[in-house]
Nucleic acid binder design. Structure first.
Ligand code: MN
Ligand code: MN
Ligand code: ZN
Ligand code: ZN
Lengths: 138, 138
DNA sequence: GCTTGACTTAGACAAAGTCCATTGTAGGAT
DNA sequence: ATCCTACAATGGACTTTGTCTAAGTCAAGC
């Protein structure tokens, strides 16, 4: 996504082949890859790219707010390039498929003061779970 | 919690010292311990208990539905004995403190059909984030 | 084209969790 | 009370996920 690359250059990033490849891999809708998956796909395009660089680049992208870290399952973190439109996730309990969803309503308003324990609440993250069409029919 | 031990015995569990200790450790309100924390506290009561046994027992308790697995941070899973009253979590972004919360409203109803992608949606998990009173004042 | 500091690399290290062969024991049978 | 045995516990090897570092490389400004 040259959009992203443009923004990164604007932030003073050196444009290396490795960073370009990671940005390319993280492109599309409903993309939620683990670091290892990103690495595997990056290696397909640039065989000598190292695991450390993938982790570094992902970490930098997260710090810059260009990519989100998502932990829908309890295994590896997943990296989500859809950072500019707030959304939640719908996860298949069997196969792990993940879709971006946009529920209506304001869940922050649904947490009464008596349930806030004096916290300053700023954000809520929702994970819907169920079965995808494939897994439901099997 | 002899309640829990009673139920486990009813399910045909052998009552070993190790299982008793793990059940004891997982007792109280707003308890969300990692496996290692459970192990550390178990060792204090029964020095020879092994890590593998703690993991095994926690896994069995989760399978039986007596304990919930929670992943509020992106590190280790946490084990939650409050499995019999549905609830969500409020997490301090700085210190990691976790409270059980009970939002009003029905988040499942807030996911329109057009946002379900053909999934059979059965459950939703909400994680509120913010700062606890301590961390907010610091 | 140099230069230089930012970037990449391989591999060591660490944390969280799983697996397995062996040893131990809870609890029913005698 | 003792025996038996299927179930449970153990320690350690192994895997997965992620971090760190020292040494080498190269993007980009001059
Ligand atoms: Mn997403
Ligand atoms: Mn809880
Ligand atoms: Zn599925
Ligand atoms: Zn705090």
């Amino acid at each position: 996504m040259s959009d992203l690359l443009e923004r990164l250059r604007g932030r003073g990033w050196r444009m290396t082949a490795q960073r370009r490849v990671v940005a390319e891999v993280l492109n599309g809708e409903h993309v939620h890859l683990t670091a290892d998956e990103v690495h595997a796909r990056a290696v397909a395009k640039l065989p000598e790219i190292s695991r450390a660089t993938v982790y570094n680049t992902l970490g930098e992208l997260v710090t810059l707010g260009e990519v989100l870290e998502v932990s829908t399952d309890k295994r590896a973190k997943r990296y989500d390039p859809n950072a500019h439109r707030p959304h939640h996730h719908l996860v298949c309990a069997r196969c792990g498929a993940i879709r971006d969803v946009h529920p209506t309503g304001n869940p922050l308003a649904d947490l009464p003061d008596s349930e806030r324990f004096g916290f300053t609440v700023s954000d809520v993250e929702m994970t819907y779970r169920g079965l995808c069409p494939n897994c439901a029919s099997a």
